[in-house]
Every structure is written in C-alpha cells, then in structure tokens.
Amino acid sequence: MPDVNSTSINLTGIYVTDNGFAAYKALTPIRAVTVEEAPEDLDEVLNGIAEVHISFASPADGRGFSTARCLRDRGYQGRVIAVGGLVCDQYRHARQSGFDGVLISQEQAAKMPERHWLEQANRVAVNYRAQIYA
C-alpha cells in the first residue's frame, strides 16, 4: 500500500499525459496538497515525496494552477498530478503550470474521450512565453 497522507487520495483511474490515456500507476510516497495549503510551508513535508496530487474542486476554480506553479518555483521535482474537476480544455493550462498529467475517472473519460485531450496536448507547446522572454 502506498504511503499516503490521506485516505481520500484516488488510486484508480486513467492518467492523461501528452501521449494520451494510460492506466494510472502511483509513484510512492504520495502526498495530497490542497489548494488551501501554502506551498511555502511544505518544503520539508515534500522532501522525499515522489508524487503530489492537487485537486480541483471545479473547472472554474483555478487555484490548483497556482499551487503547482508555486511548488515548482520552490524546486519540487517529483511528479505533480491534477485530480478532480478539470475538463479537457484545461489540459494545456495544467501542463504549462507545472503539472505532469491529469488523473481522471472512467466517467470523465467516457464524456471526454482521448482524442479531445490529445487535441489540447498539441497546444501545450503553444505559448506566448517563448516570444516574450529571452
């Protein structure tokens, strides 16, 4: 059993990456980070954690993007996964904010088939940052 900090961590489902759908295989130990937590307080907690799950309450609640971004700013290098309410149109936002992929349920996968995610995966590299920064 993976070492997790919360029984609510989802360990089943479909893991979506730039390559499309795959069966999810956890990297342990896992820590769920909520959007209410300040990543600034978690440096020690996350030391040695292989995978972080950040949950989105709904597609409209974009706090998780900032949580991931802040973790990456602080140098966290493990795998960061978005779970919960994201829709496929937001795959690009997740990847560009520091997530490695999105964990979705079978029901979500049925509603938003793999090709919709792949369409958005093509947009991950499209970004104004390349034009703005040296």
């Binding site: 974009g62 993007f65 971004r69 690009r92 936002h93 997740a94 560009q96 904010s97 970004n127």
Partner: peptide, 8 residues
C-alpha cells in the same frame, strides 16, 4: 493572453 495560471 492564454496565460495558463490566470485563466480561471
């Protein structure tokens, strides 16, 4: 434009 962190 399309800033990933600030769209929601």
């Amino acid at each position: 434009t399309a800033h990933p962190e600030f769209a929601f």
